[in-house]
């Protein structure tokens, strides 16, 4: 089940604290204005999932989440 998870930033919640980038630098970069930018849109490996979970837990704005692939784009 957990094999097809992707990392997602809620752009409305992200306040540019930048902690995620320290916790999962291989998955998240900060843009020119300090906001989180996910580097990998494909499902994460088990190692990547570990650091992604740390970033999700460490975000003070609760802007990061791990969701099943396919639920990526919820827009209508």
């Amino acid at each position: 089940m957990a094999l097809k998870e992707v990392l997602l930033v809620d752009p409305e919640r992200c306040r540019g604290h930048g902690i995620c980038c320290l916790l999962a630098p291989e998955l998240i970069d900060l843009d020119d204005w300090g906001y989180a930018q996910v580097l990998k849109s494909q499902p994460l490996s088990s190692d990547e999932l570990k650091s992604a979970s740390r970033a999700v837990a460490g975000c003070p704005a609760r802007a990061l989440s791990l969701v099943q692939e396919g639920q990526k784009d919820q827009r209508n």
């Binding site: 752009p11 409305e12 992200c14 306040r15 540019g16 843009d31 204005w33 300090g34 906001y35």
Partner: peptide
């Protein structure tokens, strides 16, 4: 609401 739009 979203940083990249607000500042970008």
């Amino acid at each position: 609401q979203c940083g990249p739009c607000r500042y970008g």
